[in-house]
């Protein structure tokens, strides 16, 4: 991993002339977790996809840039709610997918190290269908890490997991993504309160920055301040919708 840039997203988007979100400004400080919290349909995933350089169907006007003025999309890793594991490939083959798609030789020692750190060493030769939901998301995480991108975009990657597995995955993700610039898009106030160094609530009215709890990330699930923040976030989400 090279130097970690911070990102700045600034602009507005519309679909078929209908505004999706008005002009917003979202700063993602280098090496930190920025959480973008919002209900469905406010365009938070669109922001993430725009940064990743993916097709959104929306008309975007504005700028997306890195604070070192380098290119953005080639330095971005992407992880979605769907683990996107290829069902016909083994765990190992899925983890090294990026190298295989670029025609590069996969870095075997790195693969072994990542499988070990994600607790998948014993599953390396299995097909995704043989794994549990949590294990599959760990493969997806290992695949993201294998890419070794300084910026990682997470589009609700933990929302399909049960509560316990989700908390475990959050801890693991924070540990393994340390030092990278992370944008986490989520609809879960608890997740934003646990993980965000910076937290923004996105509503049809725009972006609203919330002061994060003081405890270091990942915060304890029963940390009082975190729970209070979680409540405040939920309150904001509900207010703005009404």
């Amino acid at each position: 991993m090279t130097d970690t840039p911070g990102l700045l997203f600034q602009g507005d988007a519309s679909i078929d002339e209908k505004p999706l979100f008005a002009r917003i400004r979202l700063e993602m400080p280098p090496g930190r977790w920025t959480c973008l919290l919002g209900g469905s349909g406010v365009g938070k995933s669109t922001i993430l996809r725009l940064i990743a350089g993916l097709d959104t169907g929306a008309e975007f006007s504005g700028t997306i840039r890195a604070d070192d003025d380098g290119p953005v999309t080639p330095r971005v890793g992407y992880m979605a709610q769907d683990d996107l594991l290829l069902p016909w490939a083994t765990v190992s083959q899925n983890v090294v997918l990026g190298a295989r798609l670029r025609g590069e030789r996969p870095d075997k020692p790195r693969l072994d190290r990542l499988l070990h750190r994600t607790g998948l060493t014993d599953h390396a030769g299995k097909k995704p269908a043989e794994l549990s939901g949590g294990q599959r998301q760990r493969v997806a995480l290992a695949r993201t890490l294998m890419e070794d991108k300084p910026v990682v975009l997470l589009d609700e990657p933990f929302s399909a997991l049960d509560a316990r597995t989700r908390a475990d995955m959050q801890d693991l993700a924070v540990e393994l993504l340390a030092g990278r610039t992370v944008l986490l898009v989520t609809h879960e106030p608890a997740e934003a309160a646990r993980l965000g160094h910076a937290i923004h609530v996105m509503t049809p009215g725009g972006l609203n920055a919330i002061t994060p709890p003081t405890a270091p990330v990942p915060r304890d699930v029963d940390d009082e301040e975190t729970l209070r923040t979680q409540g405040a976030l939920l309150r904001q989400l509900r207010e703005k919708v009404a």
Binding site: A52, T73, P74, Y78, L84, L86, R100, L101, E147
Partner: peptide
């Protein structure tokens, strides 16, 4: 599936590799 193609795009995959390693399988 759209998601596979998105993922491949963020990995700077070549169209050829996407064809043989994702679309065909």
């Amino acid at each position: 599936p759209r998601g596979y193609l998105d993922l491949a795009q963020t990995m700077q995959a070549s169209p050829r590799a996407v064809l043989w390693r994702i679309r065909v399988p």
